[in-house]
Each structure stands twice: as structure tokens, then as C-alpha cells.
Write a protein that binds this DNA or RNA. Structure first.
Lengths: 341, 341
DNA sequence: TGCTGCACTGCAATCGATTACATAAAGGTT
DNA sequence: AACCTTTATGTAATCGATTGCAGTGCAGCA
């Protein structure tokens, strides 16, 4: 009963051919005679043969796997991106190996372990703040698999990446609010040194300037993209004497936290303050009020990153460091309102 | 520059020992003399040697990877479970290979491909509705890696599983509402043949009976756990002449869809109708109103499933089919209210 | 001196599939 | 009939690490 798994020579024996022929019949069917092909397939079927991937990968000098470095797997923002990546990878016959870098920070050499070619044929990093040592290892040519950044990226653009136009998003958020007549506009930012925070803030600042407005430092609330940060910002907002009439939250989660905290204190959105988010996560259009926000094409980000990576893997010579920028869409819903209304 | 990756014999040569010694120095350091160990480690360091996993796995007859079958990666409900799984797996030096079964349904033989030992040392299925053919393959002893179900499970409990006490959850939801004085209680169910739907409904029914109540078929709204299903149920609710004063939604997403749709029509929760959800996803406590719901310990579900799987993998003989049931917690928040209030 | 035992280390087989190269058979050409 | 192609298949090397078995050398002991 517990006979061991059949291998290629079991099939060869049963079909009365050599292992070479079996291998060819299965992976390049057009190179063997029709009659042998049929015999081999029948034998494979009968024995229940499955190719051993370790052996194949060893011989072919590849792994068939792509590692995805995710800063925090528990964050639902990433799930749709992962879904996009998975779609594209599975079409190209790659497996998706997911690693939470927050975990791995415990043992940082573990992350750099993944950057070596024996584990993966390529890497997609969703985490822009990987330690320098790790990145250095990744760019040190010899035997290191290609790395693509998605959503986030590294300073100096040392790697190819796929991202949305974050600056433009920041700009659109502020312009939308300014267009509704808001003059005192606040902002909840992302984590301090994060590249997304930088880009969104830069865009927002340009829009402030373009509309002849200024961002009062008192109205800039530090955040980290989380629900809790949004709630904290809500409390800060309540404490202000000159409260902004509108707030741009650099993530939807923070917008929810912010609105929810205000609601607990009897402040209504958009009645008392307008709110714009960023991301357009699934629930945004069902939140109460439905959230005005900047939509990131998350599935598409994932698909693009995976396709870009695959093209790098299949390229014979090393490709240029390309940056692919997708546009964001302003989804106007119910959380923003003209100041006079 | 583009020299190929160093292998074990490069290290052996540099250290002046055999490949066997290098292998031992790296994986069983206590079996080699201290001086050799130091020499080998130095040589490994100098060459930048990394063990080739395909080769190691081929020789050791394992893959070092666990496949996770997820019904819909895009659904954020799973992200926290995945995070839990990842934690436990990485501690045990396993990689997590994530597969979306919705994708793979396009080519169902592809799913069964994963159930063979050459790809993974074990499998965690979050999808209870895998095709029978696939499951048959998985249970057919020879060479098939162990399978654990998490959250969902299969009819007849053919596999070990980790889940929450769904029936008890359904019971608690209805009892909570009945305890608040509600007599006409509705329910939005999950997908028709889903095991979770079955268990939650059964528990709910028992609670109905225990409180001397009945579930009017008109108040049973079919759903599928999604936001949209909840919204559709909202529209159905609005159409009723005898509207239930409380509704138990078998997922938080449906609760959000339901509440949101009602809000658009000027109906307030909990003012006009009380709502209980199921899952306690992150945003539940920040929704407006904060959602009363049954908390599933999602991280813990993931961790437990991974640990159970690992114990099966490491077991020399096959273990019993164990079912681990975790308890749910009723989180009372603002979406439910006593009928008289 | 000779023997036993222990601690290390090396040799070489092994895991299973792929593929360069060799060979064989069949068909085509002049 | 001699020779060249083409097509199909087999032989055997190869990918890189692991590990059973067989030394080798040295210490301890009689």
C-alpha cells in the first residue's frame, strides 16, 4: 500500500522506453513518435507519476518560485495586490512564496537569505524600507535573482518598480477639497520616512500652493496608515481651536479611524468636516459615509509587477531599471462636501 | 564578474577538505573538529556560498514548502489567518506557498497537482469546497502530503481541521438579540452549501427554538459573505411589510453591506434595526455604528493549523484525524440595542 | 608492542529528471 | 547502389548536496 512514489524510470520501464524518452514525451511531446507518446502517457497515467520538482529544478537551475516580501501580511491592503501577483505568476507557472518581513526582521539575515537564487527565481518587494544590507546583497550581481518593487520603492530607484502616481494623488485630494471651497485643510500623513508619505505629501503641498493655500503645521497629523493612527488624529482634531474643515488622510484606514473617532464625539462627516482617503479599499464605498478617496488599481499593480519581474527573469541580458507608474482615480463619494452647503 | 554561484565543492576546495565535511560542518557542526569547522565557515563566508535548496531537497526527499489553498486571496478576511500561518511556518523553517483556488479552478487538475508530495510537504486548505476528485487524490495515501483544513472543513471530517465553534456563534448571536427583547429576527446566510453557513444556521436555529421564537422564511436572506450580498439583503429588508427588528449577518462584510444600504435609504442602525455580524474583522470596531459581532481568533486559527500540520509532517506514523475547535467571543458594540429603548 | 576505541574525515553512491551527443532506422536523391 | 537527411530513441553525464560506510590517526591500556 505504502509504495513509494513512482519516478521516471518506473514509467520508462512500464512503457518499454528509456527515461530520456519519457522526459521528452512529457515536456516536448512533438519530438517523439505518436505511438510512443501514447504509450508513455498511458504508463504515466497508470503509475500515477508526477514529476519531482526538486530534481527538475536542480537540473534546470531554477526554482519555479517567486518570493513576495510583504511588510505586514495582516494588513488587508495587500491582499488584492497578492491576488493580482498570483494570477500573473500562475499563468507563467511560477509559485508564489509569501514572506512577512516584519517577522523576518527578527532575524534579518533571513531576509537576505531569500535574495539568493537558490530559493527563488525572482523577488517582488512590497516593502520599501528593507535594510540597506539586504538591498546591497540584492544588487550585488552574482547569482542574485532580479528584484522588483511594487507600491513602495527604494530611494534612488535602484530597482525596477511599479507604483501609482502618489504625488498626483496627493494633489488631486487637496485640489478636490480646495475646489469645494475649503481653505483650512488638514492632513494625516503616513509613516515618517516612508516613500509613499513623501510623494503624497509633496503632491499635496504643490496643490496647496497652486490654490494659494498653506498647510498649518498644527493641522498636520502624524500617522502610520493604520486605523488607530486615524483615531488618534481624530482626537487631535477635536482639541484644535481652529479646526480644519477638511482633512486628507493618506490611507483609507486612517480615514476610517478618523471619521469613527469623530463620530463618537458627535462630529459628523461630511457635515462638520470633509474627508478624503487614499487607496479605495473594498469597504470604502460602503463605509458610512461612503468615502471619497483615491483609487489605486491594486490588482493591476500586482499583475504589472509580476509581469515585469517575469520579463526580467526571462531576459537573457539584464534590462534597464524601469519605473512603471499607474494613475490613480479620484472616487468622489459622500465624505466630502462643498464648504457652503 | 558574472561568475556562477559557488557550490559546495568550491568551498571544499578552498577549505582543503571534502564536500562531505563541508556539508557536515554546516548542518551538523558538532560532528566536525573545531579547527575544520572554523576553516569551513571561513571558506563559506569568503566564497559567499549558499546551499542549493533544490539539491538539498532532492536528496532529503522534502520540499520545505507548505501550500496554502485560499478560496479568494483578495478577500481580506484571510490575510490575518495567513499572517498567523506564516509566523508558525517560518519558525519551523518552512516556506509558505500561496495558491488561489478560484484561479486554479480554471484548470482543476492544477489544484490536484499541489496535493502531490513533490511540490509541498503539506497543505493547509482554507477552502472547504474543493472538488471531490481533488480530495480523493489527497486521501489516497501513497505519496500524498498531509492536509489540514482551517476555518472551513469537509463533510464527514475526512481531514484534520482547525475551526471556530460556528454553531455556538450562531447561537450567541440570536440569544444576544433575543435577550435584548427582539422577537422578529432575520438572518443573512452564507453561501448555500457552505459548511460555515450550515453550522452557523444550525446554532441560530437552536437559539430561536430555545427562546420560543421562529425564523420566518421571509426573513431569511440568502447571501455569500460578500458586501454586495449584504447590500442586496438590505434591499430585500426594505421591501418587507413586517420588517425584522434585528438581523444576524453571517459575516461582517455582509453586515457592512446591509447597514450601508439601509443608511442610503434613511434607515438607521441600531435605531431602526439591530445588526450582529460574524468574524470581527479589523474595521468592525470602527464602523459606524461599531459592529456587534462574533470574534474569530484569526491569527490563532492560522497558527494552530500550521502547528497541527507540522506535527503531522514530523510524525513517523500517521496521526488521528483531530478536530480542534476554538471558541468565538461576542463583542457587544453599538449596532445592537434593546427593543424597548 | 599490540590492541581497542574514539573522533574525524573522505569516498562514492544516491536523490530524479534533463539533455548533449551518439546511434539507428527510414526515406530521398542522383 | 552509395550517400545524405531526417526522425526517433537510447546512453550517460550532469545538476549540488547528503550520508552510509570505510578508513585514518591517535590516545589509552595491558
Amino acid at each position: 500500500m505504502e509504495s513509494k512514489a513512482p519516478n521516471i524510470s518506473d514509467v520508462a520501464k512500464l512503457a518499454g522506453v528509456s527515461t530520456a524518452t519519457v522526459s521528452r514525451a512529457l515536456s516536448k511531446p512533438e519530438t517523439v513518435a505518436e505511438s510512443t507518446r501514447i504509450a508513455v502517457l498511458a504508463a504515466a497515467e497508470e503509475t500515477g507519476y508526477r514529476v519531482n520538482l526538486s530534481a527538475r529544478n536542480l537540473r534546470r537551475q531554477r526554482t519555479g518560485a517567486i518570493v513576495i516580501l510583504v511588510p505586514n501580511l495582516g494588513n488587508p491592503f495587500f491582499s488584492e495586490i497578492l491576488a493580482g501577483i498570483e494570477t500573473a505568476l500562475s499563468h507563467a507557472d511560477f509559485n508564489m512564496l509569501v514572506v512577512d518581513t516584519r517577522q523576518a526582521y527578527m532575524k534579518p539575515q533571513l531576509v537576505s537569505e531569500y535574495l539568493h537564487a537558490t530559493r527563488a527565481d525572482g523577488i517582488i518587494a512590497l516593502d520599501g524600507s528593507l535594510p540597506d544590507a539586504v538591498l546591497a546583497a540584492a544588487s550585488s550581481g552574482a547569482g542574485a535573482p532580479p528584484v522588483i518593487f511594487a507600491c513602495e520603492w527604494t530611494p534612488h530607484d535602484r530597482f525596477p518598480s511599479v507604483r501609482v502616481n502618489n504625488a498626483r494623488g496627493g494633489e488631486m485630494a487637496i485640489s478636490h477639497l480646495a475646489g469645494l471651497g475649503h481653505r483650512r485643510i488638514g492632513m494625516i500623513s503616513g509613516p515618517q520616512d516612508n516613500v509613499l508619505t513623501g510623494a503624497r505629501t509633496r503632491g499635496a503641498m504643490e496643490a496647496f500652493a497652486a490654490h494659494g493655500l498653506e498647510l498649518d503645521p498644527a493641522n498636520l497629523f502624524p500617522g502610520d496608515f493604520s486605523l488607530e493612527a486615524g483615531a488618534r488624529a481624530g482626537l487631535s482634531w477635536l482639541d484644535l481651536t481652529h479646526r480644519p474643515t477638511a482633512v486628507f488622510c493618506q490611507s483609507d484606514q486612517m480615514a476610517f479611524g478618523f471619521i469613527s473617532e469623530l463620530a463618537r464625539h458627535g462630529v459628523s462627516v461630511p457635515g462638520d468636516v470633509s474627508v478624503v482617503g487614499f487607496d479605495d479599499i473594498n469597504i470604502a464605498r460602503r463605509f458610512i459615509p461612503a468615502l471619497t478617496t483615491l483609487r489605486q488599481p491594486r490588482t493591476w499593480l500586482g499583475v504589472s509587477a509580476a509581469e515585469l519581474l517575469i520579463s526580467h527573469i526571462q531576459a537573457t541580458s539584464s534590462l534597464a531599471i524601469e519605473t512603471k507608474v499607474l494613475e490613480v482615480d479620484l472616487m468622489v463619494r459622500d465624505s466630502t462636501r462643498a464648504i457652503d452647503a
